[in-house]
């Protein structure tokens, strides 16, 4: 299935957000996730399904002033 991940086309096997994060080997406790511009709480990653053409954003912290 094709989704938009962090602004780029991405092909995924995942059907939930949690599976997507696992597929990407992203440490869940260090990131925040947005699905189609709405923040999805960590507790809801498992129960949140993604579908074709969804826009997913995964952010974390980087050095900044």
């Amino acid at each position: 299935m094709k989704i938009m991940l962090n602004g780029e086309d991405y092909e995924t096997e995942a059907s939930t957000l949690r599976q997507l994060l696992d597929e990407l080997h992203v440490a869940v406790e260090r990131v925040a996730v947005e699905l189609n511009l709405t923040i999805v709480r960590r507790a809801d990653h498992d129960s949140t399904y993604i579908k074709e053409n969804d826009a997913v954003e995964i952010i974390h912290f980087v050095g900044g002033g």
């Binding site: 962090n6 080997h25 995964i58 952010i59 974390h60």
Partner: peptide
Amino acid sequence: TVAVRRVNITDR
């Protein structure tokens, strides 16, 4: 202070 940015998907 820290900044909020996209996770680098290609270099995980």
